[in-house]
Amino acid sequence: MSDPVIKVEGLTKKFGSFTAVNDVSMEIRRGQVHGFVGPNGSGKTTTIRMMCGLMIPTSGMVTVLGMSVPEQAKLVRCHVGYMTQRFSLYEDMTVRENMAFLCRVHGFGHKRRIERIDEVLEQFDLVPLADRRVGPMSGGQKRRIALGAAILTEPELLILDEPTSEVDPNTRREMWGHFFDLAQAGSTLLVTTHLMDEAERCHRLTVMNQGEVVADGSVDRLKEELPATVLEVSGGEVTPLVNDISTLEGVLAVNQVGTVIRVLTRDASITNQIAMAIPQSFSISEVPVTIEDVFVSATRDGSRA
């Protein structure tokens, strides 16, 4: 396989005495949609900013598209579309004006600019919003606009920081459709998200916690290699059982999903203990691991930094 599009080694970023990113190493391969997940404050945005050369690492090295960052950040910026977590387009300008600005900055000629903007507006259903000011628009509309702006210049690498937060489920599906189309066409995407169904769809996934990478690999492998078993308890009013089960030795996490309880355990041997702790009318069964289970078990410690 070809060189990784982004290669990060031993990346560390300190703000004063606080270490926001600690010895992170990861690789993002060409043509993939790479998911980037982790609890709030785990250091995803900070890592991304260092990849874009917007922050200088305390130590470690970053290579993007074969160029080292921050040294060659200026060159790299011509090939990267970056969608910021906080909305950063000009609120007092219209959608079209914002896009025209970005096209000009990237050296698009007049004709190419007009064509490309129309194309993107069409693609993201932004035509009715095109000549309205961005400021008063809804959260989801702004996300769509920002995403459109990021892909506007057809960059070979897209770094999207929470592109789907505030976005309705239908638009979310459409966006993910776009992501895979782009990946199919040869682009590479790094996408952060807090939504596990989105994480599940990625080719590969990196999980961060408290500034460190705690899980990294393809989604299937992460699930396979999870050193845990998921048991499902059902058959009645389960809510009162949550406390009883979570205090048991060997239980990693307990989560109620509607009328069932999902119990994340180290292994299936705990089944008997659970059975003794709860009334006999309930049934216990082993179910397949989801990526949420991977996330929960990887980020259990101090998830609220």
Binding site: R49, R77, T84, S88, L89, E91, V105
Partner: peptide, 14 residues
């Protein structure tokens, strides 16, 4: 202050 800086400096503008 308005949060445009992150976008602006991520562009190739020198």
């Amino acid at each position: 202050e308005r949060g445009n800086m992150e976008l602006l400096i991520a562009t190739p503008v020198k």
